[in-house]
Design a protein around this nucleic acid. Sequence first.
DNA 1: GTGGTCTAGACCACA
DNA 2: GTGGTCTAGACCACA
Lengths: 123, 123, 123, 123
Amino acid sequence: MIEINSKSSTPIYEQIINEIKECILKGILKPGDKLPSVRELSTMITANPNTVAKAYKELERSKTIEVIRGKGTFVAENYTPSPTDDKLEELKELMKKIVIEAHYMGLDKNYLSNLLNDIYNEF
Amino acid sequence: MIEINSKSSTPIYEQIINEIKECILKGILKPGDKLPSVRELSTMITANPNTVAKAYKELERSKTIEVIRGKGTFVAENYTPSPTDDKLEELKELMKKIVIEAHYMGLDKNYLSNLLNDIYNEF
Amino acid sequence: MIEINSKSSTPIYEQIINEIKECILKGILKPGDKLPSVRELSTMITANPNTVAKAYKELERSKTIEVIRGKGTFVAENYTPSPTDDKLEELKELMKKIVIEAHYMGLDKNYLSNLLNDIYNEF
Amino acid sequence: MIEINSKSSTPIYEQIINEIKECILKGILKPGDKLPSVRELSTMITANPNTVAKAYKELERSKTIEVIRGKGTFVAENYTPSPTDDKLEELKELMKKIVIEAHYMGLDKNYLSNLLNDIYNEF
DNA sequence: GTGGTCTAGACCACA
DNA sequence: GTGGTCTAGACCACA
């Protein structure tokens, strides 16, 4: 379910975060579902436990998952924080970067519009 | 023209790359235009010459700018490499990340569509 | 294994690149083999870590080696990019230069043919 | 006759040297022929006079051309110095580099043999 | 322990 | 004056 590319330039802990968030969005993981323990997941994907722990910490901080002492880690109830200006700015910067990169590959607005649609259809 | 945010998590050399590419896209910098020398730009943005040199080197590698020995650095003629599968995959991953982040802030597809439009209008 | 000639006019980082590629060709280094870390190699050849890092970076760019985050640097699986026109032109220019230089030392075509054979036999 | 690529990574003064040597090899320039003056050549190829002067100096040092005071610069009588060990080693290194680069583009010994032949046929 | 980023500063080749 | 190479050394993210 969760696949890590150890050669990718995105850090493993970030890949874990992204994949888990994707699973939740796709409904593969639902609110209340139990996540594998840090040890379990780290052996599943042959990663360092510290790395998995870091990913879980970050997911907990963003209220995506919840740790219940002695019971384990669970997908949190749907929680959508109101977007801060910082976060919005960050999002815009990312989109800007995509537009610039796309342009430098000869891809136009239409291409990106379609890409956006495709991704939403995947979910 | 080029502004660096030293608090940002994106490395300075990458910020330089992005800003220059943006200037070219907006037409502020045109093919053949001379860029400030490594030393000039480094004092302008109070960064180390090596950092600026690194950014220029990368821009040269991607054929965005050209170095003429002993004369300086210039914006290259428009050059759009055919997009490789790797690059397209990277673009898709980036867009996916945006969609996920947006969703977790309670922003929907419409919001991102508009954001995309806005950015294109800026250029 | 890797020997640097500090008096040579070819930059140290380039010598490192050449020597590593040679080792791979000769089979001294095989795909998947771990390379010495940047720090290790830099002390081995008494060069600055930055210089070694530069060589490794370039080798990574050409997909000769791969970096696995936090684990180290490894020889990549055999990868032969289709030769671009630019690269072929460069190769031809280099060979032309050899022919001219050889001529000016009184060496003829036969000598270069034999030299070419000898080098292939070394590998 | 002499064409300079100001964007090439080989220095202009070296390009001049190579082109002149090539002309001599091809017989376009014969022993005793007068070369354009430093000023003439520098305006012809729109280069800095210092750059042309440097090329001429080097050609003079290698006895490829001769300066006769007050008369000008001339192609020297055929002169083939006995190859020094240093020079031979350099030649071998260059050829080695070609072999390695060629290998990394998937080109074999045959390709290089043919390339060598082609270049000799050009002359 | 691994590589990545950045600074400060020297020296050099080139035009 | 231009960029390229290299050293020395700090600090950081990642695993």
